[in-house]
Design a protein around this nucleic acid. Structure first.
Lengths: 299, 299
DNA sequence: TAAGGTTACGGCGATCGTAACGATC
DNA sequence: GATCGTTACGATCGCCGTAACCTTA
């Protein structure tokens, strides 16, 4: 057993068990991959894959179980490398952040600005994805830190820290009937609604608010992206329900924002990362900035 | 980086950073060890050890941190091997059990007998040690399963399962004054006492019982081992306080045992093993036997 | 000066690449 | 027959062992 065999197994996982693709990724010829896999299997004393003829289709039960250990080894290996380069130079490096459009646009600018000042040598990769993809990106090591609002499933591999709490607001064009007067669930439901897609930015909380209500929301447009919602509200399509922090009174001067905190339960934005994944010092400081920005936002 | 370098680091830890000893353990010459270590350090880009001249004294902070990852890799590596051999033949193998004398003699016989019937091909190594050494044996992979009574410190790496609950009894020779009548803390304290050493077999609970009492125990003999206590009780030295399951009415016919469950809080014997350590199937079944035996004991 | 560690160099074996072959869609 | 995987063989590179050298108790 050696580390390149372990690495090979990891890559096979990624390439859907294609030896030739794996060879390419490892910068060696395909025959070498074939042999290394055989060597490993003979050392183990049992095949690890379901084969159909020569092609590998899937892993068998032993292979699946071994894969967990393989992933642990790979994780530890990259941790050693990160640890070392962090030790040698904690000012430079890269940071992969996975988040949704709304967070990226309305929450992250401030903390990222502050972070850049402290760590001008750290390259930031911002990766926008749907909430359900975010956690996956952590597991596949495509992201170091995820910032997300929708509930993250109980995952023992994941470290989840609360970041901040926020409420939805309704936005309408000035002069719209909803710009004035009390707002109730029923009154809100009497207008056509534009809000986030399923699984995005607290949409589940909006659902929850109306679950026990007689009136039903008439959602005529769902988008993953606050700016899309705003654009269509501007066209007069209806009432936008967006995250509070996505309303900017300096920019959205044509809008009136109405607080919905009494109608729709609060949403919690969280910071998540893999427990086993060593974050470089600046990564830990980035999280500090997020939490600092969250606290500042309260006032 | 390769697995033998990782293995080398593990062994260096064990040998107090002696290159020559490490070489011996790895069955290679010392110069090879020296070179591999250098190669690893240059690859990392930083020394990992505190050196005094040529000798290695200790690990530096980076080394210590990296060691955690090294241990994770080694753990995963042996897990792969155990997994594989378990998959190929789950009937044969070895099982290292670490426990105290009292458990080994008075609790384990039955479950081990039953286990042997199911798994005649599994070699059992029973390792007796003091309670505080037990956990250490798990961490150093000298034992797979530990059975212990005294509190195990909060240890995130450890899986601890409750096994059974038991009480102390007082044993005296027939005709001894304590063989008759009510027993109170005060009355117990009026006799010379023989019991377990500090840190053994619920000794802490005996201490606890007398902490808030006016009378103090006069412990004239402490031993790690129930049989030693019994022997000296037989010589008439005083009253023995031993674990309930260590009194066998068929063998200890010269003794009278008196229940102390109303005086001394119950003790809990637990089963502990490393979370990250893969237990072969028979190891899991051994734990099942322990719990089964524990349940049977209640009646 | 003995014990432990480093450096230099030669030899062996592991693993890669080329290439020819085999199978499966 | 094109793609993917296996087998065979020669070449290379890494790693070990021998041995001489260095350093410190």
């Amino acid at each position: 057993m050696n580390l390149s065999q372990i690495e090979l197994l990891r890559i096979l996982q990624e390439t859907n068990f294609s030896l030739s693709l794996a060879a390419e990724k490892m910068n060696i010829v395909q025959s070498a991959v074939s042999r290394q896999l055989q060597l490993f299997e003979t050392e183990i004393g049992s095949p690890l894959f379901e084969r159909k003829g020569k092609k590998i289709i899937a892993m068998n039960s032993l292979g699946l179980r071994i894969m967990e250990e393989v992933n642990a080894i790979n994780q530890a290996k990259t941790n050693i490398q990160t640890l070392a380069s962090d030790y040698l130079d904690s000012e430079h490096g890269v940071l992969h952040i996975a988040t949704t459009h709304t967070q990226a646009k309305y929450f992250l600018p401030k903390p990222i600005l502050r972070f850049r000042e402290k760590y001008p040598g750290v390259r930031i990769y911002m990766d926008e994805a749907s909430p359900e993809q975010l956690i996956n990106k952590l597991h596949t090591h495509k992201a170091d830190i995820a910032i997300c609002t929708e509930k993250v499933a109980d995952d023992t591999y994941l470290m989840v820290k609360p970041c901040y709490e926020w409420y939805h607001v309704a936005v309408v064009l000035k002069g719209h009937p909803l710009a004035e007067g009390e707002i109730s669930l029923d009154r809100l439901a009497s207008f056509p609604i534009l809000t986030y897609s399923f699984g995005f930015t607290g949409r589940s909380n909006i659902e929850m608010a109306f679950k026990n209500s007689v009136s039903e929301l008439d959602i005529i447009l769902s988008a993953a992206d606050t700016d899309v919602i705003k654009s269509y509200v501007r066209l007069g399509l209806g009432v936008g329900i967006i995250a509070g922090m996505a309303y900017d009174e300096k920019i959205d001067t044509d809008f009136v924002a109405r607080d919905l905190s009494h109608l729709i339960p609060s949403s919690r934005t969280k910071i998540a990362y893999l427990k086993n994944n060593y974050l470089p010092l600046y990564g830990q400081h980035f999280i500090d900035e997020l939490i600092f920005a969250a606290e500042e936002m309260r006032f």
